[in-house]
Design a protein around this nucleic acid. Sequence first.
DNA 1: GTGGTCTAGACCACC
DNA 2: GTGGTCTAGACCACG
Lengths: 132, 132, 132, 132
Amino acid sequence: MNDAKADSNITFSLETTSGTPIYRQIIQQIEYAILSERLKPGDRLPTIRALAVDLKINPNTIAKAYGELEIRGVLTTQVGSGTFISNKKPEARESIEDIRHRKIQEVLGRFMQELEDLGLGKNEILSLIRKF
Amino acid sequence: MNDAKADSNITFSLETTSGTPIYRQIIQQIEYAILSERLKPGDRLPTIRALAVDLKINPNTIAKAYGELEIRGVLTTQVGSGTFISNKKPEARESIEDIRHRKIQEVLGRFMQELEDLGLGKNEILSLIRKF
Amino acid sequence: MNDAKADSNITFSLETTSGTPIYRQIIQQIEYAILSERLKPGDRLPTIRALAVDLKINPNTIAKAYGELEIRGVLTTQVGSGTFISNKKPEARESIEDIRHRKIQEVLGRFMQELEDLGLGKNEILSLIRKF
Amino acid sequence: MNDAKADSNITFSLETTSGTPIYRQIIQQIEYAILSERLKPGDRLPTIRALAVDLKINPNTIAKAYGELEIRGVLTTQVGSGTFISNKKPEARESIEDIRHRKIQEVLGRFMQELEDLGLGKNEILSLIRKF
DNA sequence: GTGGTCTAGACCACC
DNA sequence: GTGGTCTAGACCACG
């Protein structure tokens, strides 16, 4: 594990052994922060270099994550001043809340399936979470 | 989604949009079935070809999953008669129950982290699962 | 016969008429190179594609050999930069020297048995090897 | 390992863990016995059933080995009396001695290559064989 | 450029 | 019928 608190509003937590590419983890964590409104339009993200140092990873990896989010219209870069959360999602046909709910349902569905595969019923799952 | 009931004891459920390779999903579902004791030593797995038809994927993909589990000593194959759960895991220093509990904790930890990233608290999570 | 000198440290020699699968020959030659310390932890193996060209075989065949060794923890791959000898064999209870000696005894035993079956005595064998 | 002395002249020694199919091991051992003249034309081989009991393997496996050698003209079966070494090898373009020498060279070449891969030089090999 | 995944299809070995 | 090996080729992910 590899944590880093950045400028503000977002803390990254990387799992280098899980097989999930690092740049995907970064993308997901930025998206989730937006969906849960910890990051709002206009907020500044940490610089690539600073974040690379904090997370002890290759700057290219962060550049790739930011780049993909920029292509999707989630981020905007302003040369000389940094990378920001966009004001608008041009193609958005769903509201942020809708997307968030969809993501939550996806995560929940995957999770329930995996725990069921591991032989747990709903009551056992509830009990585990209460003790978490 | 893509489900298939096989010979017995195990039903595969593939998620083709999640980015997780199909063969990894198969490996995980076999491992979890063993950990939850739905599959026991000596049990026969579905044949590669039958499963390929059921899941509508290429036989080589299943062969790759079975092959990795064979290298790891989880499965044994007898050409001409099929693929079986191995009798012994020679290097096992942990009981099946211990491994199962470790996996459950891993899945749970990942899940709680993701939902927290999506802005959910424990009570909201509990409520969602009750309604699941 | 089919020889290929790769990046360094290891030269592969395939016997396509022996019935032994090509990917198994590759695995054995990598293992033996490690046991005789011609390959050490951190050393880079030839790329899959370069070796495929050299050995005039399909890249998938080499990928299968590398893949098995990766599952066994002998190799590590870093997509984008190549395949390397792992630093540690976590479960190793035998030293490299012990394994090497065991392998030598196995090869020797098989060989003496086969030549005995072909009607040769120890002195004839010694004489043949001197002339080899 | 699994040894069995049959009617006469030939003792089979099977290696069930080596990956080499059992029927191939039987074929090889019969061929080598012929090449080294421990079995001569007209000699009777053990019956399939007796040998199956001795070696504790499936009779079909022995039938397959005998069958293949019969196709090649090495054996002849006389219903009711048994299986025998043929008098003639119809297609033989090489003498028995030539074949034997070729086989010896093959075995020797494979062996020297493997031990070289394991880091042994000729003198070490000679020394090991003297102590064998 | 690296390796990874998946498909399609041929041929072989074993029961 | 079973699984195993190998080829060929497409497309993706990563640096």
